[in-house]
Design a protein around this nucleic acid. Structure first.
Lengths: 64, 64
DNA sequence: ATAAAATGTAATATATATATGTCTAAATGA
DNA sequence: TCATTTAGACATATATATATTACATTTTAT
């Protein structure tokens, strides 16, 4: 439920639509990923991380 | 082309089939991921990383 | 209080990740 | 050398990520 993606996006002052456009997906896709209702592809995870200045672990990894 | 996944798998003495079974995918899927011919889902990346004792960044992140 | 922007949500359509089956070719060990 | 395991490769089938459209709700600013 941790919303690291949303936090990183807001920190960059980007709307869902702007982030979506930068990583070439639909706005809805970003919305669902932020809600944890999606299982995005590795490529998309990497694109999001790079756009937000984070790494995969920063945004998508959970330690046990 | 870096084969970090294959290296981590061999280090754990697992065959493609054993790794596939542990993360509940087909052997072919692991083979293609190791060859870089696939764009796996985040869930699968996480399952593979945990099984191999690595993180997402260890296996799937490339710094520029 | 109102308008505009941002986000949530749902239905249907399409692209692609993954499964399954089969065959071949290395690799490993007896 | 032979048998067995492991892995590469290809075709077709299925599940699901993602697109598209549209409308509702919430936020933000005026």
């Amino acid at each position: 439920m941790s919303n690291r993606i949303k936090m990183a996006r807001v920190e960059k002052s980007l709307t869902q639509e702007q982030l979506a456009s930068r990583v070439s997906v639909a706005r809805q896709t970003i919305g669902l990923i932020e809600k944890g209702k999606y299982n995005p592809s590795l490529k998309l995870c990497i694109a999001i991380a790079k756009t937000l200045g984070k790494t995969l672990d920063d945004l998508f990894w959970e330690d046990d």
